[in-house]
């Protein structure tokens, strides 16, 4: 017993610690580097700058939405509605821009800003409702977000009758989507800013620490005076808002408001979070690892494209990777 308290560093202990670091921090970066090299050797077109930029762009969307998913997972919930929120944001924003454009045809920038605001408000509203029902009415988050997913897709499809909404200002759908800075898409910088903000918010603010506390032990957090209700609502709002941001960016890329926007986002965002080591039991998760998880998925998807594998196979691969990552996470402790 004494030895465990004094810091005796026998080789065996050192080795065990080394392995622990390897499993928890080293595996994912190693996997990424390996995949990066393998894909490059498989087909050198992978190395091309245009392709690498494409990977970063696709990873960016996923990183933003996964960071939101992570916050909800940390607080001990799920958000199955993220895909629906992104789709509904896309539709409401596109419809708002088309309407506003008819009202004020001269101020296109204002139209875009107001349109994006409408989209983000939609996301905020759904997130608040999710959080309210989960935290105050105490309904199981799984059922709440599965229900709000159905509602969000239903509203989006009803508002557009399933047809894409065209007619957004080109400032948004062409100029903004293709805007580059120092050779990289602006979206990449935006993602870095958002990830940094999430990192600071979760790691260095009172609210962030509270969210971890609520996720690891709701009762204990509540007894310690943590405003648990506020924390849960904030987490769902953050998740929905980030899903909404992803919806805005994807809409700019696609150039139209789509009710069928990126239907695999829900699966992918949860997969990225789980691969990044976020626990489904709450209280554990780090935004850096989640970003790496999203990057891994983007690389895998890009690899499938390079190998000319039908994009319909992607959900199969993502599904397998998801279960494998979770399985590895379960086996890892016994390896240690």
């Amino acid at each position: 017993m004494v030895e465990t308290h004094t810091h005796v560093r026998t080789p065996a202990v050192q080795w065990r610690q080394y392995r622990r670091y390897l499993v928890s921090y080293g595996l994912l970066p190693c996997l990424l580097v390996m995949l990066f090299l393998l894909l490059g050797f498989y087909d050198e077109r992978f190395w091309r700058v245009t392709n690498l930029i494409n990977v970063m762009r696709n990873a960016s969307y996923l990183m933003i939405i996964s960071a939101g998913q992570m916050i909800v997972l940390i607080v001990g919930g799920f958000d199955l509605s993220v895909g629906g929120v992104a789709a509904l944001t896309s539709v409401t924003m596109a419809l708002a821009m088309v309407q506003l454009r008819n009202l004020i045809p001269d101020a296109l920038t204002t139209v875009v800003v107001l349109g994006v605001l409408v989209g983000l408000i939609t996301g905020f509203a759904i997130g608040f409702l999710n959080g309210f029902v989960v935290a105050i009415l105490r309904v199981n988050p799984f059922m709440v977000t599965i229900g709000s997913m159905s509602v969000a897709y239903g509203v989006a499809l009803y508002a557009t009758a399933g047809v894409p909404v065209y007619g957004m200002p080109e400032v948004f759908s062409r100029n903004f989507a293709n805007l580059q800075l120092f050779g990289l898409p602006v979206i990449v910088y935006l993602t870095i800013v958002i990830l940094f903000a999430v990192w600071v918010a979760m790691g260095s603010t009172k609210l962030g620490r509270y969210i971890y506390a609520v996720g690891s032990n709701l009762h204990a957090a509540s007894l310690s005076g943590v405003p648990t209700t506020v924390c849960i609502i904030v987490a769902y709002v953050a998740s929905s808002l980030l899903a909404s941001v992803t919806g805005v960016l994807l809409t700019a890329r696609v150039g139209s408001g789509e009710a069928n926007l990126a239907q695999t986002l829900m699966l992918e965002s949860i997969a990225a979070a789980i691969i990044g080591g976020v626990s489904l039991r709450g209280g554990v998760g780090h935004v850096g690892s989640v970003a790496l998880g999203a990057l891994l998925l983007a690389l895998v998807t890009n690899g499938l494209d390079i190998m000319h594998i039908n994009s319909l196979f992607q959900p199969i691969v993502i599904g397998v990777v998801l279960v494998a990552a979770a399985g590895l996470d379960r086996i890892a402790p016994t390896v240690r």
Binding site: T264, L267, I270, A271, I274, L280, L312, F313, Q314, P315, I316, V317, I318, G319, V320, L322, V323, A326
Partner: peptide, 12 residues
């Protein structure tokens, strides 16, 4: 996680 992954596989 398991059944979500299986959902992806079955969908594909």
């Amino acid at each position: 996680i398991v059944t979500l992954g299986m959902q992806g596989v079955a969908f594909g």
